[in-house]
Design a binder for these strands. Structure first.
Lengths: 321, 321
DNA sequence: CAAATTTATGCAAACGTTTGCCGCCACCTT
DNA sequence: AAGGTGGCGGCAAACGTTTGCATAAATTTG
């Protein structure tokens, strides 16, 4: 219950002014070495810990050592990995991370953007809710450094780090084709998401490269949630001429599709339909890591040109399930 | 780049003193309704957002509207779910959550405890690194509300919410026994973790209840990581008289065990060894939710008696893999 | 050796709130 | 008519820092 010691306590004990203490801590200004030693000793004896809140209030520009991370849902492994990447580089630079889940809910996103600004975070990392997100643009206009991840913002040239979804899908479908499949079902992402569109493009390009015609009945769009993967898989497998392989556009829909396959598995001869499970590993941790690095650089130098990173996903080829 | 408006700006525009504005916002003190209306109008017009940092600096006691959450690793689904539970109730009460991953590293834990105190969080939720965690006790002594989750702290009667690991393991092993298994391999948690010990006790009690003798060679301890699950599963399956079922003490070790089984699956006749995959679902989200609720209550009333919740895990019975 | 410069430290304002205290006004009560 | 009461709102201090400016001492310079 004893309240923590402040600069004043340290100053009193070291018989100096508080500004001297502040300057020894921050290594700013000229302070004699013997004075510094005395101050340090006092700090040690009192167990002094600087108050980040006061510091944050005082210094408008950077140095608040706090980052904001706004993501749809931490329960999604992609964002958990991403968050971990952010947190790791933040920790290395003595930054803490304020985590916000916004559930693709614009009201929640706005609330958190307000909170983060109100907390004077040094910068914010987030996947914009859609390509022209006015709330985010407002924040950028306020001068808060922002790095976009996963998705991007059409206007405003911001730092961003994305995954090359087109190439990822392309390689995956190429691989499926190479394994001899000719009828590949697509469980796509929402048509209005950039990630969904890019993956669709990869699917189509792979077909084009192989000289394979697209079969419209094999192409369906879900909403990135498990249930839709299951539904669509059922639909596809119920076709008169079902696909011999499926390409699902994210992890949750893949899980749903596997449920569907398992449910039908009993009724089907295993070799009639034995889908090879190959996954496109999103470099989520790396996305977070690079985003945080970019953000820290921008915090240090607000004038540097915006850089845009595109990370390549990895194709992981597994045996059939 | 325009700096945000402050109480002063609002006060000027509404032609009142800043204290009047503050009091209208916080609904404290007596302010006439027409004055309030004028103030609100000014706030709206200026797009005023209160500065949480200044507020936090000023008010030592509670009302900083910030919670700290320190967990081993957000990539662990258990903690991701827990974090989500915390965040959801925090959001409902207009709190934000500062997330810290400490990786079971004491230095990191100390760093983050310092940061959280330095940020004047209203309270902290964490699984203590071990049962007598001096750093955490120090924080408690400083008067910061703390709620323990998952594991508990031996001394200091704190609010805590845990999972009933003993019953969970007991029910799971009972279920396995009921399915006719007599040789059940245990892939246990670390012997020095309370969760590991409790689950071991459940395993043993289930055997005792069924009048089954324990076979020491079937009981092995891992470290809750995937690799150890795989290694131990291989060991167990290599025994002259292998177990007919396995009970792994957490999700990652289960995954490792499944890898091992899959790797051997080709060489084994499927009906010789066909482990039923039944899982004990930890109510992680609920743990986080209740912990946050407890914490908010304690923030409101520091004198309330410490309450201790024990949540029951759910046995989810699946078909064999 | 006086003047100019550098070095080391103190002083006090500012960041944006909250809040105890005081005063004003209007309305009752004797 | 004098005093009391209560509603309303202003004044200013405080929270713990950082930092521009002033100043004293020490050092270099001409």
């Amino acid at each position: 219950m004893n309240k923590p010691s402040s600069l004043i306590d340290v100053a009193r004990r070291a018989k100096v002014n508080i500004s001297t203490v502040s300057r020894t801590i921050n290594q700013t200004g000229k302070i004699g070495s013997e004075t510094q030693a005395r101050v340090r000793k006092a700090m040690r004896e009192l167990g002094y810990k600087p108050n980040r809140v006061a510091r944050r209030l005082r210094t408008r520009d950077s140095s608040s050592h706090l980052l904001g991370l706004i993501i749809p849902n931490i329960q999604n492994i992609f964002f958990a990995d991403l968050a971990r990447g952010v947190e790791d580089v933040a920790y290395k630079s003595n930054y803490a991370v304020l985590l916000c889940n916004y559930d693709e809910d614009e009201a929640k996103e706005r609330f958190y953007l307000d909170v983060l600004q109100s907390e004077s975070v040094d910068g914010i990392i987030l996947p914009p809710i859609h390509e022209t997100d006015p709330a985010v643009l407002q924040v950028v206009r306020n001068g808060t450094p922002v790095v976009c991840v996963d998705r991007s913002l059409s206007s405003g040239n911001l730092d961003k780090v994305e995954v090359d979804n087109h190439t990822g899908a392309l390689k995956a479908v190429e691989h499926i084709i190479a394994r001899g499949h000719r009828r590949i079902g697509l469980i796509g992402g929402p048509a209005d998401s950039s990630t969904g569109r890019e993956r669709l493009r990869g699917y189509k390009d792979a077909h084009a490269q192989a000289g394979l015609a697209l079969k419209p009945e094999l192409i369906r769009f879900g909403d990135y949630k498990q249930a839709s993967g299951e539904t669509i898989a059922h639909e596809l497998l119920s076709l008169a001429e079902p696909p011999t392989a499926l390409f699902a556009c994210n992890g949750l829909m893949t899980a749903g599709a596997l449920e569907a396959i398992a449910a039908r598995g009993l009724k089907m001869l295993p070799d009639v339909f034995n889908p090879p499970l190959t996954v496109v590993r999103q470099p989520a941790y790396e996305v977070g890591k690079y985003a945080a690095e970019l953000l820290l650089k921008r915090i240090e130098d607000g004038k540097r040109p915006a850089t845009s990173l595109k990370l390549m996903p990895e194709l992981i080829i597994r045996k059939s399930c």
